[in-house]
């Protein structure tokens, strides 16, 4: 009997402490949020441009399973359109690069907690995200797209029945868009690109909704799939992002993007990393130089 009583007491106490611990987490984060807004820079989560330079290493969050934008080749080296740009940033900052493998759903979190200095992971600029992180000038155009197997090509969202499930990746704009605009569509969510692509190949869902750049690449690389809906939702852009308030780093990246326009850097990037997949057809529609039109309109 006494043992049981002790168990019960300790369990209740455990619950109490855990809850108190959580309360503290929230209090802490609130305090920290207040700190970063009131007292910018002194005890922020991010590292300023000078701190990165004196440290000698910049932490850049990229995808490691999103071919051809960010992936790892058979020799263990990061490759892709985003990585090509990251390499240039490292070179011009004069520091080494530490690549941090990120998933779609934790990109904001990584910046908010300062685990990376820059996210260069096909990060679409949205109003909601811009409240949490600071986007630099964009370097690519993007919209949403839907790819499906040739056996049943989905050309309109209305073709998706109540029994069908659409594959999306957790934390992407496709997930947000379908959740808000088509709540009747059943979503099958994956946490990584590698898993989502295996799932569409294995026939676990009727279609895969993602950035149209990525689904077009997938259909081009994998015979038997067609992008039935090449453009969905608004026309957006992809940009580097830094932690909220990290103006020194943000300004540096913006200057860098403007300066790179002179050498048509992102065209070179496209030709080095994307041309094998897309051919030359998509070059002008995808690539943005010097921040494109958005250079004048604030992102």
């Amino acid at each position: 009997m006494r043992r049981t009583k002790w168990f019960a007491i300790s369990f209740l106490a455990a619950l109490g402490v855990t809850l108190a611990g959580c309360g503290q987490v929230s209090a802490g984060s609130a305090a920290q949020a207040a700190e970063t807004t009131d007292d910018q820079g002194s005890k922020a989560v991010y590292r300023t441009l000078d701190e990165i330079k004196s440290d000698g290493t910049v932490n850049i969050g990229v995808f490691s399973d999103k071919n051809p934008f960010g992936y790892v080749d058979e020799n263990g080296a990061y490759q892709g359109y985003d990585v090509y740009f990251a390499e240039r940033i490292g070179q011009d900052l004069g520091v080494k690069i530490n690549y941090v493998s990120t998933e779609a759903a934790n990109r904001v979190e990584y910046l908010e907690t300062g685990k990376v200095d820059i996210v260069l992971a096909n990060f679409t600029v949205t109003k909601e995200r811009a409240e949490k992180v600071d986007f630099a000038l964009p370097y690519m155009n993007v919209a949403l797209g839907v790819v499906s197997p040739d056996s049943r090509v989905i050309t309109d969202l209305s073709e998706i029945t109540a029994d069908d499930e659409v594959i999306v990746i957790s934390g992407t704009t496709a997930e947000t868009y379908l959740t808000e605009n088509n709540p009747e569509i059943k979503l099958q969510k994956y946490d990584t690109y590698a898993n989502a692509k295996n799932a569409i190949e294995n026939g676990n869902g009727v279609a895969w909704a993602n950035d149209n750049t990525e689904v077009i690449a997938f259909a081009l690389q994998n015979p038997g799939y067609t992008v039935g809906i090449p453009s969905l939702g608004s026309q957006d852009t992809i940009a580097p992002a830094v932690s909220k308030g990290n103006t020194t780093l943000l300004d540096w990246i913006n200057d860098e993007i403007r300066a790179l326009a002179d050498e048509q850097f992102f065209h070179k990037d496209y030709e080095a990393t994307l041309v094998d997949t897309y051919g030359l057809d998509y070059e002008e529609s995808l690539v943005l130089e010097g921040g494109g039109a958005a250079a004048t309109a604030a992102p």
Binding site: D65, E74, S101, N106, K115, D191, A194, K197, Q221
Partner: peptide, 20 residues
């Protein structure tokens, strides 16, 4: 799941890079 590149993550990277 918290971003450490260990054996399963490496396997995923290899699957992804060689999908074609």
């Amino acid at each position: 799941m918290i971003g450490v590149v260990e054996v399963i993550k490496v396997a995923q990277q290899i699957i992804e890079a060689n999908r074609m």
